[in-house]
Amino acid sequence: MEGGLVNDMRTIQRTDQMEDMKISAKDVNVYYADNHAIKDVNVEIEDKTVTAFIGPSGCGKSTFLRCLNRMNDTIDICRVEGDILLDNEDIYDARIDPVQLRAKVGMVFQKPNPFPKSIYDNVAYGPRIHGLANTKAELDEIVETSLRRGAIWDEVKDRLDAPGTGLSGGQQQRLCIARAVATAPEVLLMDEPCSALDPIATAQVEELIDELRQNFSVVIVTHSMQQAARVSQNTAFFHLGELVEYGETGQIFTTPQDSRTESYITGRIG
């Protein structure tokens, strides 16, 4: 795999910025009523890197991801304990406005959820709310670049007024990616963004992720080992609500420390 060399280079790059932690989670526990979904998870997510969360279905990847922008607040029965720091500020602190936090930490959901509005309005939604564009022309510009980055511009450029809900599942997912990118978040959380996409669109989204890494951090949940290996620099393996192993992607995939990680990667559990 050509990844070996690339990952080496990235390691060097990263040691320079060792102090540069974007998000750090300490002793995070999440409960859904009595269901203990996340158990004592500690993770440091670096700035300007891609972090992949892998693990079998139901192990709590989405749950943990939603903790990072307080989307769990919308679930009545969900309780989050522990500290999660974004830029050394506790995001669960009373002074933090979850609305502002979510503008900084954007999210692409596991299931595509376009608004029942036009494609244009879907993408323009975030920029309009946050006042990112002063003129219509600027807004048009943002919408176009976002749709291009979401790898869907060519398919929808002639029907920006058509409803976003009329697109195919994969197109909807890319629209949601474009919508999240348009808000210019500092951290982008992506929950299985490629699960409904064909290989071409997947490649384009991966390209986007790589591009986003120049300025933002990206956290991606994926069920594809290849994808995790291709796009991420760090990988976290979750199992039954626990963070089993977290480290540099190359190392996780080549010399995992934990036997559960090894079994999962080689396809024996999951």
């Binding site: 922008n69 989307m71 919308t74 609305v99 502002q100 936090l101 979510r102 503008a103 900084k104 954007g106 999210m107 959901f109 299931k111 959820n113 376009p114 608004f115 029942p116 939604y125 975030g126 709310i129 946050h130 949601c176 919508r179 999240a180 808000t183």
Partner: peptide, 11 residues
């Protein structure tokens, strides 16, 4: 999911 989408964009 529709509301989540909106909250997720910081609305």
């Amino acid at each position: 999911a529709m509301r989540d989408g909106s909250y997720g964009l910081g609305a």
